[in-house]
Every structure is written in structure tokens, then in C-alpha cells.
Computed example of a mutant assay.
Amino acid sequence: MQVQNKGYLSIEQLQDQYLKQNKSGTSQVATDGQSFQEILENSRARAQGQVRFSKHAAGRLADRNIELTSGQMERLQEGAQKAQMKGIKESLVIVDQLAFIVNIPNNTVVTAMNQQDAAENVFTNIDGAVII
């Protein structure tokens, strides 16, 4: 016996559509292995318009023994804001002897290095630079 569905989707078809939608990431949030505390801090920083650090960038700061002063953090934030006003998407922001690659739309520092680590002075995949 064959049942005609008159243009309506079966439960199985709806389920397949829902699962495909979730696999494409449209209704899921990627956490990149972050802890709940990191996600909470990052969402607070984003809400306040502050620059946040990716897990990779935080690791680079720790590996390279780079500690930012509050003044340097303010200048990094200022540099990211200037880059955003100019329409830059991926920016090199230089603060003192430190270089940061910042993803401007996400307001996220992607990587960080000091002068010794940037010995080649070649930066790729950026579309602008701010020296502050």
C-alpha cells in the first residue's frame, strides 16, 4: 500500500533536514576546545567591545613570556578600533616592541610576537597595519 503525502514532508524527511542544518553549523556555536570560563570571558569582552585573545594567541603570549601592561592593552584596543574604522579585516597592530595579528570583525587577537620572534619582519594574510 502506497500513501501519497500531498506535498507534506514525512517525519523522516524533516529529521534529515534538521540534521543536515545542524551539521552545516547554522545553529551550533564552535567553541574551539575552550572551557566554559574562557567562553564566558570572551563573550563579556566582546559585549564590552574589548579585544580578546584566541587560544592560539594566549598560548603564544605564554610561550614567549609576553606580559601586557594595562597601557599596552588599551593601545592594542585603540589600534583595533582604528583598523575597524578604516575597514581593515585582518590587521597587524604594533604596540611598542610587540606585534599582534588581529581579526577585526571578531575583535580577536589571532597571534602575538615580540621583536625577536618577528625577526624576518614579514607578515602575511593582513590587509592593513596600525602602529600605535
Rank of each mutant, 00 (worst) to 15 (best):
V3G: 10
N5V: 11
K6I: 12
G7H: 06
L9G: 11
L9D: 11
Q17R: 14
K20G: 10
Q21N: 14
N22M: 14
N22Q: 15
K23L: 12
S27E: 11
Q28D: 07
T31V: 14
G33Y: 07
S35E: 06
S35D: 07
F36L: 14
F36V: 15
L40F: 13
N42E: 14
S43T: 13
R44W: 12
R46N: 08
A47Y: 15
A47S: 13
V51G: 00
R52N: 11
F53A: 04
F53P: 04
S54G: 00
K55W: 03
K55G: 11
H56V: 04
A58G: 13
R60V: 06
A62I: 03
R64Y: 01
N65C: 09
L68W: 07
L68M: 09
L68K: 04
T69S: 15
M73A: 12
E74S: 07
L76C: 05
E78V: 01
A80D: 02
Q81R: 12
Q84W: 00
K86Y: 07
K89N: 07
S91C: 15
V93F: 05
V93P: 05
I94E: 06
I94A: 05
A99Q: 07
F100Q: 03
F100A: 02
P105K: 08
V110K: 06
T111W: 00
T111H: 01
T111G: 03
A112C: 09
M113I: 01
M113G: 12
N114P: 09
N114K: 06
N114A: 08
Q115I: 13
Q115P: 05
Q116F: 09
A119V: 10
A119C: 09
A119Q: 12
E120W: 07
D127S: 07
D127F: 07
G128I: 00
G128K: 05
V130C: 03
